[in-house]
Computed example of a mutant assay.
Amino acid sequence: MLHLIYVDPRFRGRHLGRQLLDFVVDEAREKGRKIIPSCSFALQEFTRHQEYADVWAKTDTKYSDSYSS
């Protein structure tokens, strides 16, 4: 489960969040795992970019995790 991707405000706008997400996705692919994006940023990226579909463990809840709000 991907709980949170956080980039310090001083470093935002440099695509570091996307780079972190890509690192996690690449590792999931290598290990044959799926990701449940409970972080709003990760969910937004998974929704926008079809290239994450192979690792996305989709559920019926808004945040793909019944414990998130």
Rank of each mutant, 00 (worst) to 15 (best):
E45Q: 05
S64P: 05
D26A: 13
K58A: 15
K31S: 04
E30M: 10
Y63E: 13
E30F: 10
V24M: 07
R18P: 01
R48E: 12
L21N: 03
R14V: 01
D54L: 04
G13Y: 08
E27D: 09
E27L: 05
D22M: 04
W56L: 15
H15C: 05
A28P: 09
W56Q: 10
H49E: 15
F41S: 06
R29C: 04
L43R: 15
K31Q: 08
R12Y: 12
Q50S: 14
I36G: 03
R29L: 04
T59N: 10
Y52C: 10
F41K: 15
T47S: 13
K34S: 06
R48W: 00
S40P: 10
G32K: 09
K31V: 02
R12I: 07
R14I: 02
L20R: 01
F41R: 08
E27M: 02
F23R: 15
W56S: 04
H49A: 02
R14H: 11
F46V: 02
K62T: 05
R48Y: 00
K58N: 04
D54W: 00
R14M: 10
F46R: 06
G32S: 04
A42V: 00
E30Q: 14
K62M: 08
T47M: 12
Q50A: 11
Q44H: 08
E51M: 11
G13E: 12
Q44V: 02
S40D: 08
G13N: 12
S64G: 14
I35M: 07
L16Q: 10
C39H: 10
R12M: 08
E51V: 06
G13W: 07
H15P: 04
K34D: 05
R14F: 06
R14G: 01
A53C: 06
D26V: 06
R48M: 06
Q44A: 09
V24I: 13
K58E: 11
A53I: 13
S40N: 05
R33S: 11
R48N: 05
A53D: 15
D54N: 11
G32T: 09
H49R: 15
G17F: 08
C39M: 05
A28E: 07
R48V: 04
F41Y: 14
Y63F: 13
G32N: 06
P37S: 02
S64V: 05
V25R: 11
Y52E: 13
Y63C: 02
R12H: 09
L43F: 03
R33A: 12
F23N: 10
A53E: 15
L16S: 13
D22Y: 12
V25G: 11
K62A: 11
W56C: 04
